[in-house]
């Protein structure tokens, strides 16, 4: 495990990128960041600017117009950056698949490192996703 990966996985700054979904996944993300789960124990903190981000938490359904913004925000993030698609919407389109305002899943626009299905996923599931992602980054099986 290199020094860079070690530092990155010990200090993850997450940026929340909400893509006009039903808003429930966004609320669960906020729940995960409350003192009850205390993610600062693992060095995970929420940041306001995408330039400071190491992890993009993408929620919701993106249509042809908002997908342009999604790509731009991804380009604006300082690399290396990892992306987690949170919720069934971001992973597959969920119940909006037949809807006029849905195009393709998030991973058709930007590379996604972890998928977290659920409608919405519980905070415990999100922490588990982060743990799995950290393990993947560190190269453990």
């Amino acid at each position: 495990m290199s020094f860079a990966v070690n530092m990155l996985t010990r200090s993850l700054n997450v940026f929340h990128l909400g893509g006009s979904a039903c808003n429930n996944c966004d609320i669960e993300i906020i729940d995960t960041l409350t003192p009850r789960y205390d993610l600062e124990r693992f060095g995970i903190t929420l940041v306001g600017s995408v330039r400071h981000a190491d992890v993009l938490l993408v929620t919701g359904v993106f249509n042809k117009k908002s997908a342009i913004r999604l790509k731009r925000v991804y380009q604006e993030a300082a690399k290396p950056v990892v992306v987690i698609a949170i919720g069934a919407c971001a992973c597959t389109g969920n119940m909006f698949q037949k809807s006029y305002n849905w195009d393709v899943p998030v991973d058709k626009y930007i590379p996604v490192d972890a998928y977290l299905p659920g409608c919405p996923p519980k905070p415990e599931a999100m922490i588990m996703a982060v743990v799995k992602l950290v393990k993947k980054l560190r190269g453990a099986k």
Partner: peptide, 21 residues
């Protein structure tokens, strides 16, 4: 009423930024 970050957390935070773009 939280546990809080480990002792070396501020060091990790700054060192991590040194390897970013």
């Amino acid at each position: 009423m939280r546990v809080g970050p480990p002792f070396l957390q501020p060091f990790y935070d700054v060192l991590k930024l040194m390897i970013k773009e």
